[in-house]
Each structure stands twice: as structure tokens, then as C-alpha cells.
Design a protein around this nucleic acid. Sequence first.
DNA 1: ATTCTAGGGA
DNA 2: CCCCAGAATT
DNA 3: AATTCTGGGGTCCCTAGAAT
Length: 484
Amino acid sequence: MNDMNYNPLTPFIKGELRIDELRGLIRYHDDKYYGNASPEISDYEYDQLMHELLHLEDEHPELIREDSPSRRVGGQPLKEFATIPHTIAMLSLDNTYSYDELRDFDIRVKKLLGREEIEYTVELKIDGVSASLIYHQGEFQQGVTRGNGMEGDDITWNLRTIRSIPLQLNESMDIEVRGEVYMPVKGFEAFNQTRDVPFANPRNAAAGSLHMLDPKQVAKRPLSIFIHSLGNVPNWTIPTQEQSLCKLQGLGLVVNPYHRLCQGIDEVITYCQECEKLRPDLGYEIDGTVVKVNSLEFQKRLGVTSRSPRWAVAYKFTAQQATTILKDIIIQVGRTGALTPVAILEPVELAGVKISRATLHNEDEIKRKDIRINDRVVIERSGDVIPKIVGVLPAAEGRNAPFIFPTTCPECGAMVIRLEGEARSFCSGVNCPAGRQRRIEYFASKGCMNIEGMGTSVVKQLLEEGIIEDIPSIYTLRKNGDSA
DNA sequence: ATTCTAGGGA
DNA sequence: CCCCAGAATT
DNA sequence: AATTCTGGGGTCCCTAGAAT
């Protein structure tokens, strides 16, 4: 590093040469930085290089180029994120939780394709946030979150700060790729040292980071990305997933090194087992593997359903579990009047999250699992996300009596009705305040009328103060002091 | 300076 | 994000 | 009979901005 500061040339020439040198150095270290590759310099030293480059570019604006690493961090913070439609829907994957289910998947694929044995790829399922990246003539143009699958938020300027996302591909082509943004465990831990309120887990840290309005802040977060698939790509002539990954890597995109081409489902399962062994040493979190039909032609033939492609599944590793005490069962009333029992738990840490509640779905679910108040229960986070009561531990002493599902609505006292052969119970009260509140919330929500500022608590207050009483009355609302 | 609310993501 | 139920589709 | 679609309902974390 000593020679970096020495240069006898005139200021201008020195500036120009040094700018080129700095850009080269920064790109070099960007390459080293991602994934597991151990960086050769500290973040501090890296920041020094970047600062010097920014300073020189400031002095010599005529030398600024769009693909300079200094352009990773944009100017002003954004006001909000624009909504961008996806040309091809960003679906999620169907999940499997056992090798048997993986075999079922294989059977179905073979049946649909009418083939004996299928070639699959197996990749790691990175536990992060998915994103879509659009390159125009080789230049990074736009990055979008998954959103609701049809449209997402424009997070271009945040993604540009991620050093493993090249601003320029090695080929001038139009291509949309998809990948997973994540925070490496080391970076997560180090960054947490700098915070008074530490992040709960790397995934939430990554998700939160991508929604900051100021890219300069995002740039400080240790984010990285693995590209794993194609989005909208006209004239993609490469015939398989495996070769596509190779090509993406050739373009300068970062593809996770652990993936394998497998002949038939048995090889798939073997490799999944290997992946599970890798898990502790990867340096980033994964929650399973992704199995894809290798041939893109076959993928096309299999097609997609409304939620997920038929040519891929996730195989999820067995979830971590914890035990805790079920303190209470409460009954919530939904907008349709449906009564849902919810378990209130003694808070317990599980997989980077504090769990204190879990849905019990309906009356029969409680019976089936024989769940009673004060029981010690086993919980997990299905899909590594949603708290779920797996079962009850045997009690040493006597237990409470079985839970009795209410026969009257806890909110309004009206009769509870459960129709013959149906699973759910409903409050029969036409004017149940809980149901009414939910209905108004729903009506105002983004998916319906998208009335800004009318969330749960505002609706609740308006109802409590008698300012509104039903959906129509929303429209005669007046500003404070104004008369109707 | 701290707490609450809305919206987004998994 | 997961899960469940019920209807629609094959 | 099996698969898919749709809708309802649930959990927790994070950011940003408003309210206190």
C-alpha cells in the first residue's frame, strides 16, 4: 500500500493516473470482497480509497465516468420508492420438507414430461431478500424488489452500493437476472457492534437495509448478492440452467459456487445432504436447497402455476425448535366474523426472533393437538418464518382442563355459529365492533381503496370517538373544525 | 428524545 | 412469509 | 381423486416519518 501515495507527476496528470489506478484498485477489492473470499484490505482502507477517488473526481469532474465505482453511491436521498411492474412475475417456490416429498416432485415432473429420468440442478437456498436486476446494453439500469410478485419497489440506488453487483457486465447485452441479497454473518456481527440496537438476524437486517431512502447509509451495510436465475431475457440461446449459471458468472455476476448437476432424484438427495453439512461453515445463512429441472425447454413445457413454477422446488432443512409455556389462548375476530384462536406464549428466542404468539387456526386444531393453557409446548418457525406449535410436551403434574371454545363472541357477546361440516366458527353479531373495524380497515387498505393514513389504529380511534360508524361514513369525514 | 403508526419484506 | 379451508378445475 | 386457485387469517423485524 506504500506506493499508492507516492507520485511525482504534475497535479493534473497525477489526478488522472491516480483516478484510473484507484478505480482499478477498488474494482479489484470489490471482486475479492463478496462471498467468502477473504478481503485483502479492511473496510476502513477501502473507504479511504473510495474517499480519495471521490475527492479527485470532485476536482476533475470531466473525468467522471458512469461506470466508475464512485458512482455506486448516488447523490440525494430518495423521497420514496417508485413502483415498477415486473415483466415476468417474481414467483415464490413450492416447498418440500422431506426427501419423500422431493421424490413426489420428481414423480410429478416425470409424469408431466413423459420421461424416465430427469436432469436437475441443486443450488443453495440463500436466506435473504430477492431482487430483480435489469441490465441494458451491459449497464446496470434498474433493480426491483419482489413486492407482491407483479410489481415491486425501485431500489436501484440501494443495489448500486452493493459491491458484488457489477455496474457493467463483461458483455453489452440486455438481460434481467434475479438473485438473493443477503448479509454475511461476519458482516452482520461486525455491523451490530456499531449499533446501539443490534439487528435480530441477518435476513431482517438485509431486508431493512434495502428500504433505506439514503443510499449512502445502505453503502455502509455489509450486503452482498448471489444471482441464481434469469428474468426477462430475449433470445437466450443457452439451453440449461447449469450452463446459464456459468454464463451469468462469465458476465461478471456473482453466482454461488455450490451448485450441482444431478442425474435423477437420488443424486439430488445425496447433494442436498452434502449441502446441509456445508451449512455451518458457509459464512451466510441458507434455509435449504433449490432443485430445478435443468433443461430450460422442459421448464417451459412444465410452466408455472399462479404461485410457483412447476419445474422447481425448495427443499427446506428441518427447522430449529424451542419449548415454552402456553400462557393463554385468545380469540380474535376477523372482518368476516371468523373467530381465530391464537396462542399467547412465554416469549422465547428462536432462529433470531422472539416468539410470543402463534395461530391455532380453529377449534379442531386445538383438540387435535390437545393443547391446553399452561402446557409446555414445542414450537418452530415453519419455512423459517411463521411460528407454529408442533405439539405438547408431556406434563409432570396435572394439566388444566381442555380448552373450551367460546359459544359467544368475546367482542360482542353474540352467539357463535359453527356450521355442520365446517372448520371455522363465526360471530353471528351483525354489528360486532371487532368485525366492523376489520371491514373498515380492509376497505381502506392498500389492496382496496388505498386510503392513506387509515390503518388499524386510526380506524379504531375514529370508531371509538363515534366519528365514523361504517364504510359509507368515511366519505363524509371532514377536517377538524369544518362542518359537513 | 422517545414512542407510535404505516408499510414492506420473509 | 406459512397454513387452512372450500371451491373450481382437471 | 388429485391438483390448483382463491381468500382469509396468522407472526416478527425493520425503516421512515409523525406525534408526543
